[in-house]
Write a protein that binds this DNA or RNA. Structure first.
Length: 497
RNA sequence: GGCCUGGUGGCCAAGUGGUAAGGCAGAGCUCUGCAAAAGCUCUAUUCGUUGGUUCGAUUCCGACCCAGGCCUCCA
C-alpha cells in the first residue's frame, strides 16, 4: 500500500486524508478542453498540475488511471466551424491534433484514456435515460432537462442554493431556470445523433458524467479541473451522476487556481487576453512554464505578467548550472572524509542532498505543495554552487554531491524539471530566443570568436567594443577559464511572446 | 443580491498557536583585464484593520475594510 497523502477537497473546503476506493489504486478524472481553439497558458497550468500530480503518485507506488476528456461537439465548435466553412468534426479533429502537439511539446504524459464526446454518445444516451427513469429529468420538445428541484443536495459542492441563483433567461420548456440541458434538440445543419427524444446532441455537463462513469466507475477517487468549473459544470456533474447511479460521484474534488492578469483579472478566452501555449514555447523551453506553475501552490491564483517567464527561466538555468557543476565533480573518498576536509559548505550539500527526498515527500503529501518542494530544491542548488567555488571541490567532491544528483533526478521524474542534458537545454534557450529576436546565430558566434581573438591579444578596447555590439543584440558574454560563453539576455518584454 | 477565495518585506510568494521558506529587484563584497555568471553578506520586531480567546496569534473566533473568482461559455 503506497504512503498516504492529504488533499484539499473542494466539497468540504478542508484538507482531508486521502482514502482510495481500492487499495493502492486511484481513478483520476480531469476535465479537458473544448476543442475549438488552441490551448492557452491557463489550460497549461491545469495540465502541468495534474501531470505532475500523476507522476508523483505513480512514483510513490500508486496505480493511477488518468482520464482526461475532449469535448469535441458543442455550440462554440459548431459556430467556429461554420465561420471557417468546415465540418464541426474536422475543426475538432484539427484542434485535438494541435492540442496533442502542445501536450507533447510541454513534456506532459498523455492520460491513459482520452475519451471524446462523439464516441461516447451511447453511454450518454443510456445515462440520460436512466436519469429520466429515476425521475430526475424530463423531456420537452426534443430537449432533456435535468430537474434540479428533484435533487435535494443540488448546490452542495459549490455552496449555492437553487433559489438564490441569479436566474438565467428561462429557456422554453424548462421548469426551473436552474434546470440544465442533458440533451439538446438538433437545429438544422448541426451535428446530431439519434436518441429516444429525437435527433440531437449531449449537453455540456452530461458527457463528463457518462465518460467518467464508463472509464472509472460510478464513484471516482479524484476529480480535477479549473476552479472556474466548480459551478455550474461540476455541480451539474454531481447531480447527474448521483441521480443516475444512485451513489456518490466523487470522493475528492481537486481544483486548480486560475491565471490572473494585471489587477487580478483572470485570463479567459471570453476576455480576449489569452496567451497560447504554442506561442510561449517559441521563445521559452517548456520547463520554464512548468517551473513557473509549480513554483506556486496549485490552488492559488497565479499572476501572469511580463517578468514571470524570464524570472522562471533564470531560476531554471541556475538549477541546470548547479547540476552541471555537480556532474563534473570527481573523487573517490567517503563523503564524510571529504566533508571533513572541505568544511561547512560540503557538509551542507551532503545534508541537504540526503534530506531532499524525504522533504519532497513531506511537501507533496500535504496538499501537493510544489512550492515548498521547489524552495528546498533551490536551497540545494545554491549549496551545490557554493561548494563548486571551492578549489578542491572539482577533484574531490564527487561523492558529496551524489545525493544532490539523485535529488535532481528525482525532481525530473516527479516534477518534470531538469529532464534534458544541460547543454541541450542551454542550446534550446539560445535557439528559441535568437529566433524570437531575429538574430542570426552564426553572426553571434562570429562576433564572440572575434572578441576572443582580441582578448588573446589583450586588445581590451577592441574586445569591449565587440562586447558592446553583442550587448546591443541582447547577447551577454561570460568569460571563463575555458573561454567565453554567451547567452541571450532575458527581457521582460520577451515574455509577451 | 447569493456563494466562495485571498489580503505576508519594493514586487511574487510558502507557512506556523511560541515568534516569518524560497524567488525577483536593491546595496556591499569575492571572482574578473574590466565585465558577466556564480557565490557570500545585508534588506519584514512584522504577516489588511479592529476586538476577543490564550501564558502567548501572523496563525483560532467575530466584526470591518480591500481585492478577486463564481452565479452565462471558460482550465
Amino acid at each position: 500500500m503506497p504512503p498516504g497523502f492529504r488533499l484539499h477537497n473542494t466539497r468540504s473546503r478542508k484538507l482531508e486524508e486521502f482514502t482510495p476506493l481500492q487499495p493502492g489504486k486511484i481513478g483520476l478524472y480531469v476535465c479537458g478542453m473544448t476543442v475549438y481553439d488552441r490551448a492557452h497558458v491557463g489550460h497549461a497550468r491545469a495540465m502541468v498540475v495534474f501531470d505532475t500530480f500523476v507522476r508523483y503518485l505513480r512514483h510513490r507506488g500508486w496505480e493511477v488511471t488518468f482520464v482526461r476528456n475532449f469535448t469535441d461537439v458543442d455550440d462554440k465548435i459548431i459556430r467556429k466551424a461554420a465561420e471557417e466553412g468546415i465540418e464541426a468534426s474536422a475543426l475538432a479533429e484539427r484542434e485535438i491534433q494541435a492540442f496533442h502537439r502542445d501536450v507533447d511539446a510541454m513534456g506532459l504524459a498523455r492520460p491513459d484514456i482520452e475519451p471524446r464526446v462523439t464516441t461516447s454518445i451511447d453511454q450518454i444516451v443510456a445515462l440520460i435515460a436512466t436519469i429520466i427513469e429515476r425521475g430526475h429529468a424530463y423531456a420537452a420538445d426534443g430537449n432533456v432537462w435535468f430537474d434540479v428541484k428533484s435533487f435535494e443536495s443540488y448546490g452542495q459542492l459549490s455552496g449555492q442554493k437553487v433559489d438564490e441563483l441569479r436566474s438565467a433567461d428561462p429557456d422554453a420548456g424548462k421548469r426551473e431556470s436552474a434546470d440544465f440541458a442533458l440533451w439538446k434538440a438538433a437545429k438544422p445543419g448541426e451535428p446530431a445523433w439519434d436518441s429516444p427524444w429525437g435527433q440531437g446532441r449531449p449537453g455540456w455537463h452530461i458527457e463528463c458524467s457518462a465518460m467518467a462513469g464508463t472509464e472509472l466507475g460510478a464513484t471516482i477517487d479524484i476529480h480535477g479541473g479549473g476552479l472556474d468549473l466548480v459551478f455550474p459544470h461540476h455541480e451539474n456533474e454531481v447531480a447527474q451522476s448521483e441521480a443516475g447511479h444512485g451513489c456518490r460521484y466523487v470522493n475528492y474534488w481537486m481544483h486548480n487556481g486560475l491565471l490572473t492578469m494585471a489587477a487580478g483579472v483572470k485570463m479567459g478566452k471570453s476576455l480576449g487576453n489569452v496567451v497560447n501555449i504554442e506561442d510561449v514555447l517559441k521563445t521559452f523551453p517548456a520547463e520554464t512554464l512548468r517551473l513557473y506553475y509549480l513554483q506556486n501552490h496549485y490552488r492559488s491564483p497565479l499572476p501572469w505578467n511580463d517578468e514571470a517567464l524570464p524570472e522562471a527561466l533564470g531560476m531554471l538555468s541556475r538549477l541546470y548550472e548547479a547540476r552541471d557543476i555537480a556532474e563534473t565533480m570527481r573523487g573517490e573518498e567517503t563523503p564524510e572524509k571529504i566533508a571533513e576536509a572541505l568544511g561547512a559548505d560540503a557538509i551542507k550539500v551532503l545534508q541537504l542532498g540526503r534530506a531532499f527526498e524525504e522533504q519532497l515527500y513531506t511537501a507533496l503529501d500535504e496538499d501537493f505543495n510544489t512550492s515548498k518542494a521547489l524552495a528546498n530544491l533551490l536551497s540545494l542548488a545554491r549549496a551545490v554552487n557554493r561548494l563548486g567555488s571551492h578549489k578542491k571541490a572539482k577533484r574531490r567532491a564527487g561523492p558529496l554531491v551524489a545525493p544532490a544528483l539523485a535529488a535532481f533526478e528525482l525532481v525530473g521524474r516527479t516534477m518534470g524539471l531538469m529532464t534534458t542534458p544541460t547543454q541541450d537545454f542551454l542550446e534550446e534557450v539560445k535557439d528559441k530566443r535568437l529566433a524570437s529576436m531575429g538574430v542570426s546565430r552564426a553572426e553571434v558566434e562570429r562576433l564572440v570568436a572575434d572578441r576572443e581573438a582580441q582578448r588573446e591579444a589583450k586588445a581590451w578596447a577592441e574586445a569591449d567594443k565587440i562586447r558592446d555590439e553583442l550587448l546591443a543584440m541582447s547577447i551577454i558574454v561570460m568569460d571563463g577559464p575555458q573561454g567565453s560563453r554567451w547567452k541571450v539576455r532575458l527581457e521582460a518584454a520577451d515574455a509577451q511572446a
